[in-house]
Write a protein that binds this DNA or RNA. Structure first.
Length: 116
DNA sequence: AAAGTGACTGTTA
DNA sequence: TTAACAGCCACTT
């Protein structure tokens, strides 16, 4: 049961620090599963039902919004609550500023756009 | 085994 | 800016 993919995914998600969020695509990439973002979502979908040891709430979609299944309707409020509790701020549209809260595991140059 | 589904993402309009 | 399409791969039936 549970393919290796899932174990890898869970491992990554567990490493997301508080006050930070990661996208499904990002988690997939870190888990060596680039392009399989949907699989990540599927894995987390199961995790929610099996265990709560994983901070699934810190995983959001590329739009910076909380994604959820119509089956879990209502849990979006829970997820948002948990994230706000960690210090993450939501916009009026209910979106997260990924530029600021995205879990960055790689050193980027921040694109110093010319010389101001 | 084939077809359908999905907690996604990037491109195009 | 949002909305719709297609691509993507694993899981379920």
């Amino acid at each position: 049961m549970t393919s290796n993919f899932y174990d890898r995914i869970y491992e990554i998600v567990r490493q997301i620090p508080e006050g930070r969020v990661a996208t499904y695509g990002q988690v997939a990439e870190l888990a060596n599963l680039a392009g399989k973002a949907r699989v990540v979502g599927y894995a987390l979908y199961r995790v929610d039902m099996q265990t709560l040891d994983i901070p699934w709430q810190r995983v959001v979609n590329a739009k910076g919004e909380v994604s959820l299944s119509p089956l879990r309707f209502g849990t979006d409020y829970l997820q948002r609550s948990l994230l706000e509790r960690e210090g993450i701020n939501f916009s009026a549209a209910g979106k997260i500023d990924l530029r600021k809260y995205r879990w960055q595991t790689e050193p980027d140059v921040t694109t110093p756009d010319a010389d101001a």
